[in-house]
Amino acid sequence: MTEITIKTSETTEKTEKTTGITLVEAITQALAYELAHDPDVIVLGEDVGVNGGVFRATQGLQARFGEERVRDTPLAENMIAGVCVGLGAMGMKPVAEIQFMGFMYSCVDQIISHASRLRNRTRGRLSCPMVIRAPYGAGIHSPEHHSESTEAIFAHIPGLRVVIPSTPLRAYGLLLASIRDPDPVIFLEPTRMYRLGKQIVPDNGEALPIDVCFISREGNDVTLVSWGAMMHETLKAAEILAESGIEAEVIDVATIKPLDMETILKSVEKTGRCVIVHEATKTCGVGAEIAAQIAEKGLTSLLAPIQRVAAFDVIVPLYRLEDYYLPSVERIVQSVLAVMEYK
């Protein structure tokens, strides 16, 4: 397993900025690699062709691989998902882009009623290898409906995988793994991380494992569990806590469906404390599932109640208030301190 710790010190960030690639560039690199190496892979979506996608994630792909394999679709998200079901059943590997997670809701019927269950309902006769990529999350001052973090909707659905990278390296390796996976994957890309920091990402076609968590930072005092863009704040919080002598273990869940509870439970067993950090609203968020499973399977190792630092249970505000809505480094630090002080 490749392990990369994001260094938050200024010097490291500077070097990485000049030599590496961004998360969105890592996505493009993975797509290009797979298009070049697997003739069954096609990329489709709104404005993914000549325009290169609204975030430029598919930049240059149509020029390189042609209009047949990098296809602009009419503007209908449900259609894109439904067409992927047919393509997947025929053995193609469609990689669709939905421009923002907030526009995925019209695909929900095709994803839940068909993509997730085609293999099961035909007892394996047909299957649905497909990836639906969508930028997600708040923090980039987008208009309404462009800041959603509703991954729990899909994490609730049997038959799906939900994969969320947090760094350029993980974006590359996890996207390759998702495209090669024989089952449907919802691949959510944190927009806030798209151009925040760079890493050197060798274009070697090596996938990272899915269905497993990554330990991004080792520590013995408290387990911090997060994914996506909140990994940034969580790791920052860990650095600050380290200054006060609290060593946090930081877990990047990466695949939130199915959940690798083994890694999380093992860490909690070691630390006895757990704070879960997610950008999604708290109620019925994936944090609730993680907390419940820790309570079911690891209660005796807990030295303090599990805490969740999540978005407030409100509608994502328009951007003037979004910085208050998103969990901050300070909220994470405070939550950890409370857990550490619990008697």
């Binding site: 096609i42 047949e68 394999r69 449900n78 259609m79 998902a81 439904g82 067409v83 992927c84 079901v85 047919g86 393509l87 997947g88 059943a89 025929m90 053995g91 193609m92 469609p94 019927d109 095709q110 009623s113 068909h114």
Partner: peptide, 16 residues
């Protein structure tokens, strides 16, 4: 009606 979109996906694969 959802099957009509699957059929379009199938037809896209056949044409490709």
């Amino acid at each position: 009606g959802s099957q009509t979109l699957h059929a379009v996906g199938v037809a896209t694969a056949l044409k490709l």
